[in-house]
Nucleic acid binder design. Sequence first.
DNA 1: TTTCATATGTTATATCATAACGTCTCCGTC
DNA 2: GACGGAGACGTTATGATATAACATATGAAA
Lengths: 159, 159
Amino acid sequence: MDTIGFERHDHRHCIATALQTVEETCDVQGLQLTPVRRRVLEILLARHRAMGAYDVLDVLREEGRGSQPPVAYRALDFLVANGFAHRIERLNAFVACAAPGERHAPCFLICRNCSAVAETPGRRASEALRASAGELGFQVERVAIEAEGLCPACVDTPR
Amino acid sequence: MDTIGFERHDHRHCIATALQTVEETCDVQGLQLTPVRRRVLEILLARHRAMGAYDVLDVLREEGRGSQPPVAYRALDFLVANGFAHRIERLNAFVACAAPGERHAPCFLICRNCSAVAETPGRRASEALRASAGELGFQVERVAIEAEGLCPACVDTPR
DNA sequence: TTTCATATGTTATATCATAACGTCTCCGTC
DNA sequence: GACGGAGACGTTATGATATAACATATGAAA
């Protein structure tokens, strides 16, 4: 698993791959990747950055697929619950998962200048957290690890 | 620095100590711990759990100290900016810092059953995160590490 | 065919947050 | 003492995010 956040890449390809992985996962696990859910995933993948629920909703609305908040939130909830997308707490926003299908506790790197978001493997940080929690008798179920700062591009040319 | 989240402790004492530390820090750094700011800190300390801005505002309102959201948000912003309180992104809520005065990157353990929040040292997790970020050329400024799960009490008696 | 579970669509409203502007107070300067 | 600036506060208004509740639809199970 690699980050795809701050580097050029074959975007068309990564969308297709992610979508296919999600389709297969849903198939295997008996999850319903309905038209709305699939479309919301496509929207997140296409933008390849964090989007608010209302941004997603705007796109759905233009396409005549329902125009009320619950439509977007429900699709996003489905994607997040099954690991196909992540919620960025710091931004109240959502991104498509960079590595759907793999169990992982991602970290997010959020650029405060350009708002780019990169997903990076959080194994070490998440294990450290689990260890601390374990000492206190706390049973960890979900972890959110988010860093705010400057991405490589904005470090070089701030503002 | 120790967590104070899930254990019995001398609450009266911890409030007084924290308040005194904050007063001294403000004094040294030339920060204005105004009546509203001080009162908001006291409110957070007294509850000793995560509170929404509007919960804080309700208390201020009862006391006739201003009844509009910006009053609470501004005081909370001051406390967070100076490390006297923390914002829990997952909950859109605030807690008094368990170790004001010390530079630290805390982790929060949030019980999904009883909503208790414990602050625990996040040094290892935060260092792991910085290391991952550094490899990507990302310059970390702030870190939020939050775990959701069951606290010791709720593990034993869920629901 | 009925029943049930699941998903969708819609209305209404709850919750969280901030922009903008006027006022007050303190402090330093003239 | 008058003036001017900085910072905090109070208020109005509004923006942004999120969900409760209920009606409708659809497909699978009994």
